[in-house]
Design a protein around this nucleic acid. Structure first.
Length: 570
RNA sequence: CGGGGCGUAGCGCAGUUUGGUUAGCGCGCUUGGUUCGGGACCAAGAGGUCGGUGGUUCAAAUCCACUCGCCCCGACCA
């Protein structure tokens, strides 16, 4: 591509709406443009990178025997009603009606459509296993799109689905995906971790996420730098640091006027939050459950749902007032009449703790949880925090932000059963197809790469997903265009993705653009060096430069590009 | 949905508090010339429903009401 003919609208100044690096740089470098909140246009450079990512994904999916299809984005409400997700998706689903008044949805994911296909054609164990995938636009009406293309309402996802006759088969399909995903992300040049994830309430037995650690990410991971343990905080385990010794040796009720929150209690009584026990009321069906957790900890709703059941919900202040006649801030475990008291493990054995007195304006100090409170069971109910001990090796855990770029998931028979996807097994019995689903966010790979590889000057792409591999910069096009064109053509002949900056502009201008966009290589052609029969090759990543002899430059560059394509594969 | 911020030329902003000529500045754009290894210089130009609607006023970018859109924090959530 000649730059003079290209549509690459770079911006000299930062767009004010962009804060995260990938958002800011992708806008500035002319990769994307916003159309509305959470909806983006991919400009030529951005689309080239997206296509390269998709091609890597395609190659690795095909390599495990997966077959590409293209499903509709415009889907009938009927299928969603069958699986129960017409309701379950709620406001996250974009809905519309056709002229006849039929309900439809813009698909947020494709389990239902795939299952619908499978139930018609996969009738025998002889038809299994199958892996089908597609790359297409998904629609989710996110309550709050953010960070450019990191969280959007319209996005391209690779989603694949496996169909197996046996659970061992599912394990195999899952493992194939896990290996393929590693190859994909390696080839995209990303640094990532694979973490245990929540299998939620879907009844799935296993689920892992592929995460790129980045301050811009929305997910949070607990990682152990000592033994490599890593998990999404939704499911991560860890042992809390013990609370310090309490100043309260004797159990007594104290007057705490207008002091409700943990912070206020901590300040008023001059006691660390870890010695305060929060008492939270949950309603499970028609039962009231009191949940105890340390003041410096947060309840983990995913874990709680596992312990109490999926329908558990926190009681509203009004409900608490109606049943117990006091504000939530003064609820406590002593003398309260509930159906069960469940405590987090970190509360076990706590001595000299501070709890609500079940009486307005009062707390009780010096409480020994084991003896003073009737706890029916201690469970892991809290979200781990930095500094907790690793469950595997005991070293301190770190909690970091991360971008989820892929998720693999053993679905089991949820969809096949609800939608009637059964096959006839060897033994003549009719059985539900065992499914897995596996997603990759194509745009998120692009954004994650920018988050990972950028500096104050701009982006620095991995060779494999750069929009162009090399940028030929002419310092003075009037004097060197013949040489530049010859090299340009020969690089193209050798399969190199090259852009030739033939614009009438100063050298500095071209360098700034090149730095911003982040081409891995630059070939600088200047009259000065050409006189000595030389051209200069510059590397974006480490800002090094080497001189190449004009005669052998092309061969050398081809070797280097090929080498760098490999290196991204690690 | 709660809290905060913003909307003035393609982009970034000033002007709004205290209403008053023809709404400015930088970048970008056009034309001509000079430059040519890190976002060049000189000269001349083009470009605006001041997000929208309604109101107050002799007079509104500026005051009032409503409304639309965008960003950030939180809540929610595949």
């Amino acid at each position: 591509m000649k730059w003079s003919k290209a549509f690459i609208p770079t911006l000299k100044e930062d767009p004010k709406e962009a804060e995260t690096p990938s958002h800011r740089l992708l806008l500035r470098a002319g990769f994307i443009r916003q159309h509305q909140s959470g909806v983006y246009i991919f400009l030529p450079l951005g689309w080239r990178s997206m296509l390269k990512i998709m091609e890597i994904v395609r190659q690795e999916m095909d390599a495990i025997g997966a077959q590409e299809v293209m499903l509709p984005a415009l889907t009938s409400a009927k299928l969603w009603e069958e699986s129960g997700r017409w309701e379950a998706f709620g406001d996250d689903m974009f809905r519309l009606q056709d002229r006849k008044g039929h309900d439809m949805a813009l698909a947020p994911t494709h389990e239902e459509i795939m299952t619908d296909l499978a139930r018609v054609y996969l009738r025998s164990y002889r038809d299994l296993p199958q892996i089908w995938y597609q790359m297409q636009t998904k629609f989710r009406d996110e309550p709050r799109p953010r960070a450019g293309i990191l969280r959007v309402r319209e996005f391209i996802m690779k989603d694949s689905y496996s169909f197996d006759a046996t659970w061992e088969g599912l394990d195999k399909s899952y493992e194939l995906h896990r290996v393929a995903y590693k190859k994909i992300f390696d080839r995209c040049g990303l640094k990532y971790t694979v973490v245990e994830a929540s299998s939620g309430l879907m009844g799935g037995s296993q689920s892992e996420e592929f995460m790129v650690v980045s301050p811009s990410g929305e997910d949070r991971l607990a990682i152990c730098e000592n033994c490599g343990y890593s998990a999404n905080v939704e499911v991560a385990e860890g042992e809390a640091a013990p609370a310090p010794e309490s100043p309260f040796k004797k159990r007594e009720k104290v007057y705490t006027p207008n002091v409700k929150s943990v912070e206020e209690v901590s300040g008023f009584l001059n006691v660390p939050p870890s010695l305060i026990v929060k008492s939270l009321l949950y309603i499970v069906g028609d039962r009231w459950v009191l949940v105890l957790i340390r003041g410096d900890h947060e309840v983990n709703e995913t874990k709680l749902a596992k312990v109490l059941g999926g329908d558990a919900r926190m009681a509203t202040p009004d409900e608490v007032m109606a049943k117990f006649g006091m504000p939530v801030g003064f609820v406590g475990p002593i003398g309260i009449e509930v159906d069960e008291i469940v405590a987090d493990k970190a509360v076990d054995g706590l001595k000299g703790a501070v709890v609500g007195a079940n009486e307005e304006e009062h707390h009780i100090v010096g409480v020994d949880i084991g003896t003073d409170v009737k706890v029916s069971r201690y469970e892991d109910l809290r979200t781990v925090v930095s500094g907790d001990k690793c469950p595997k090796c005991g070293a301190p855990l770190k909690v970091v932000n991360a971008i989820e770029i892929g998720h693999i998931f053993k679905l089991g028979t949820k969809y096949s059963e609800s939608m009637g996807a059964y096959f006839m097994d060897k033994d003549g019995k009719r059985k539900p197809i065992i499914m897995g689903s596996y997603g990759i966010g194509i745009g998120r790979i692009m954004a994650a790469a920018v988050e990972l590889y950028h500096d104050e000057k701009g982006i620095s792409w991995p060779m494999t997903i750069a929009p162009y591999e090399i940028d030929i910069i002419e310092i003075d096009p009037r004097k060197t265009s013949e040489i530049a064109e010859k090299i340009y053509k020969r690089l193209i002949e050798n399969g190199i993705d090259v852009i030739w900056d033939d614009r009438e502009a100063t050298a500095g201008f071209k360098f700034k653009d090149a730095d911003l966009i982040g081409y891995p290589l630059r070939l600088v052609i200047s009259p000065r060096k050409v006189k000595d029969n030389l051209v200069e090759l510059q590397f974006r990543r480490d800002d090094t430069k080497i001189d190449l002899n004009l005669e052998t430059a092309v061969e050398k560059i081809v070797d280097i590009v090929k080498d760098m394509r490999q290196k991204a594969e690690r």
